[in-house]
Amino acid sequence: MNEREPVTKPSVSQIGASAPSGATEATSASSKNPALLLENVSCWYGGFRAVREVSLAIPRNKVTALIGPSGCGKSTLLRSINRMNDLVPGFRMEGEIAFEGTSVHARATDVIDLRRRVGMVFQKPNPFPKSIFENVAFGLRLLGETTGIDALVEESLRAAALWDEVKDKLDQPGLSLSGGQQQRLCIARAIAIRPEVILMDEPCSALDPKSTLQIEELMRKLIRDYTIVIVTHNMQQAARASDYTVFLTMGDDRAGYVVEQGETGKIFTAPQQQLTADYVSGRFG
């Protein structure tokens, strides 16, 4: 795996809080001071352009859903925010992603620090083959914390709505839990190091409907403390759980681009674009 210094065209490291040109007026109310600001972001895998000139403002303490058909670059975009794509050989990004006003790809930005502040939950639950306790404590141990771990683990498990189910078996393997519990364990693991943003890459696609609803309820609670960006295939999920929705689709060159973005209610009930209307009503995608 290569963790090379990514190539970024503009050498802007400080970006003003102005909404990007691509953002519609619907988001402008809460994008006065967005947690994340994407401007003209394009992503390539080798010679293939996966994402084309995406501009977005991700509002603070809200759930923002990225929806769109398979292969439209939602996950690529999400994984560019905490630079997980650095691990993919041949990946390249242009444009600017600013997190709290600082470019995530700037030379001065420490990717380790970035990932501590921008946590991630993956499509398939991926607990470590360790005990439930050690899974949640993992990030704390990386930071070299030695005191207060017990309290933080409990607090994180409570925040992830898992505490009552596991409090008597913290020393059991994380992998012994059910799929839904494992995903909440991964959420507890992510929030144990107190990030500011949580990125969720189709967190419910491997879960049953009941576990899915639990995670959605959890997201609604977590936005009191965190900003959440979720990629989802499930339009009902976006409609139920998100405040803002960004709809992407693929162009003829198979590069993903933003068709429409705005408040979730508007996107689902009064979309401005025909493509959006077709997608949210289930006519394609």
Binding site: M84, I112, R115, G119, M120, L142, L143, R189
Partner: peptide
């Protein structure tokens, strides 16, 4: 996915 999990928590290599 195990490597990703660790990196996403801010692990160095």
């Amino acid at each position: 996915s195990q490597r990703e999990a660790a990196y996403a928590l801010g692990a160095t290599r």
